[in-house]
Structure formats: structure tokens, C-alpha cells
């Protein structure tokens, strides 16, 4: 497909159809669906946070249905072991009676992995996902097993249940492209949910795209140009989250222990590129960056004791940084009108 306009239009149409298919099952949550798809097209993983019963798992399952990708669900529990996720070597006997070790692949060997209630597993088990999420490969007994592309992890966690949960370590959190908060549905959406789930009507989800299609879309995303001053803005945003940095925002200085990593910048740029394409543009704008800043940065900002004590939400800090950071600055760092 040489014509770029056609490729962009094709990209948008796939996105539109996926949304339509998901919309058949999922009521509301437009923002969540949009952000999940942005992460998918950018090649990142998503952490969905919300109270039980909001349709997180259903959303992931529906997405896997319309994407024609191999899907697996891992229910994280405290006794879940890394081998339960990655797989393990088991002793196998052949026809001649010879025994040998054979790697039994775990549920991670899928294209869409739902890590349900990820914070219920121990950090040891959670860490089993690290290599898979970052390098799209797992290593067992010294053997490296690449995962099939596209590889997309969607994890869910419950923010209110603290007992028996293990908060995700920073390294693990940083590997999630977006952290998306699933809000409680509105009244009209609730009515619609009741209608759909308490009647005999069932909605069949059509397959819209397959693995190669998603990969082609991810390739197209990476080609979208971004101007240097927009990249400069991204860099300043990231630096503003670091309390000891030169360009730190006042709130970050006061309430943040660790700021966002370079992965945050990558997430902002890639998310911005997807959004630009979805908006029918061929370049990334400041608005695209601002729109994806919250899901891309909220889990990468670690509050200090004062921030925790104040009960601050990292969203407020990100919002503050967005307000404080000028989009374009001149050589002396002054905002350009």
C-alpha cells in the first residue's frame, strides 16, 4: 500500500470498525477503549485500574475476539508462580522410552494476554512478566523463546482492595505503556448495561483485524513525523516530573519522589502519533501529547511521603505539569506566544 493517504484512511477505518465491534458489547467507556486501542497500535501494554464489575475483563476479551489474535487469560492469585505464566520444562518420554525435558509453554505465549488482578500475585510472579513485556520473549532454563507478534498485555487491578495485594513494583509499572482508569458508568450507560446483560439478546463480535494488520498499523504509526519542538516539549514534560531536575514543576518538587522514565517520553510520542493519525493528521501536535499525558505518565510518577500523606493523585501532578510547562520556549527558556 504505497499511497500514504490510503494507508492512513485504512488505519482509521480499522480503528473505527474495532471500536464499533467493541461498542456492541461494551457500554460507554469510550475514553478507555480509545486509550486501549492507542496503546495497541503503539505496541504498548495497558494496565487497567478500576473497581470490580466495570467490564475490564469483558473489554479485553471483546478486543481479542475482534482482533483474531490468540488470547489467554491469567488470573493472578497469591499462589501463582512464575512458571505458571511463562511455562516450565517437563520430563517427556518418547516412543523409544527415552526421557527428556520439554518446555511446556505457559499462557504468556499468546498475542493478547489478560493479566487479571495482577496485583494479587506476589512480586516474584509479577516479575515473570517483565522480560515478556519489554522484550517480547521469555527465557526458561537458559533458552530464549520469542513471543509471537503482536504481543499485547492487558493487566487489571483493583485499587480499593489493599489486603492480600502486592502493589506493582516501579520497574513493572514502567513497562506499561498506559495506565487507564476505568470509571464507573453513568446512569444512562447503566441502563444500557442492564438491557444488554439481562435479556436473551447476544451480540456477536466480528473479526476486524489480524496480527499482520496490527503489525502494519504499528509500523505506520512509527513513520508519523514529529517536529523537533514538539519533541522538545515532550522532553521538558518528562523533566518537569523529576523533583531534582532543572525544569521541575513546583508540585513535582514538593510531592514527587521519582519522576517519569524515558519510557514515559516514548509513550507520549507514540501515543501522540497514534492520536494524530486517528485525528486525520500526518504530524504530531502539542494537543496529541497533552491528550495522552495522563495515561502515559500517571503510573510513572512516584509520590514521596508528603504526597502520599496529602492523599495526592498523580493525575493532579501531571495536570499541574501540563499547565506549567509552556509548549514553545525561546533560547532563554521564555514561552513563545
Amino acid at each position: 500500500m504505497e499511497n500514504l493517504e490510503a494507508r492512513a484512511e485504512w488505519f482509521r477505518s480499522i480503528h473505527r470498525r474495532i471500536r464499533e465491534e467493541i461498542g456492541k458489547v461494551i457500554v460507554g467507556h469510550e475514553q478507555v477503549v480509545e486509550e486501549v486501542l492507542i496503546a495497541l497500535f503503539a505496541g504498548g501494554h495497558v494496565l487497567l485500574e478500576g473497581v470490580p464489575g466495570l467490564g475490564k475483563t469483558l473489554l479485553v476479551r471483546t478486543l481479542s475476539q475482534c482482533l483474531s489474535l490468540r488470547y489467554s487469560r491469567i488470573q493472578f492469585t497469591p499462589d501463582l508462580m512464575p512458571a505458571d505464566i511463562v511455562g516450565t520444562n517437563v520430563v517427556v518420554q518418547d516412543r523409544e522410552g527415552r526421557r527428556y525435558f520439554e518446555f511446556q509453554r505457559g499462557p504468556i505465549f499468546s498475542q493478547i494476554v489478560l493479566a487479571d488482578e495482577i496485583n494479587r500475585a506476589t512480586p516474584k510472579t509479577q516479575s515473570a512478566l517483565l522480560e515478556a513485556m519489554q522484550e517480547h520473549a521469555v527465557t526458561a532454563s537458559g533458552v530464549r523463546y520469542p513471543l509471537e507478534e503482536p504481543f499485547f498485555v492487558l493487566a487489571t487491578q483493583n485499587p480499593i482492595e489493599m489486603e492480600g495485594t502486592y502493589p506493582l513494583p516501579e520497574a513493572q509499572l514502567d513497562r506499561f505503556f498506559f495506565k487507564i482508569k476505568v470509571q464507573f458508568p453513568r446512569a444512562d450507560e447503566l441502563v444500557e448495561i442492564i438491557d444488554r446483560t439481562t435479556t436473551a439478546n447476544s451480540h456477536a463480535v466480528a473479526v476486524v483485524a489480524d496480527g499482520p494488520t496490527i503489525l502494519a498499523m504499528q509500523d505506520l504509526v512509527r513513520e508519523v513525523p514529529i517536529a523537533s519542538h514538539v519533541k522538545d516539549y515532550v522532553a521538558r514534560l518528562i523533566l518537569a516530573t523529576h523533583p531534582e531536575g532543572e525544569g521541575a514543576a513546583p508540585m513535582a518538587r514538593k510531592f514527587v519522589r521519582y519522576g517519569a522514565s524515558p519510557r514515559g517520553a516514548q509513550a507520549l510520542v507514540l501515543g501522540g502519533k497514534v492520536r494524530a493519525l486517528l485525528r486525520g493528521r500526518y504530524n504530531v501536535s502539542f494537543e496529541d501529547i497533552r491528550e495522552v499525558a495522563l495515561p502515559a505518565l500517571r503510573h510513572r510518577i512516584i509520590l514521596n511521603f508528603e504526597g502520599e500523606a496529602e492523599g495526592l493523585d498523580p493525575d493532579a501532578i501531571v495536570q499541574h505539569i501540563l499547565e506549567e510547562t509552556p509548549e514553545v520556549v525561546d533560547a532563554r527558556g521564555r514561552p513563545v506566544a
Binding site: P225, A227, S228, N283, S285
Partner: peptide
């Protein structure tokens, strides 16, 4: 771009 709300089209075009 800023005055016309062009969403950085011109600057990106020039640089590209």
C-alpha cells in the same frame, strides 16, 4: 501554527 491553530503542521512540514 500557533496563531492559526494548525496543530504544528507547518513546522513539521518545514522540518520534514
Amino acid at each position: 501554527d500557533r496563531r492559526l491553530g494548525l496543530h504544528e503542521r507547518m513546522a513539521t512540514l518545514l522540518e520534514l
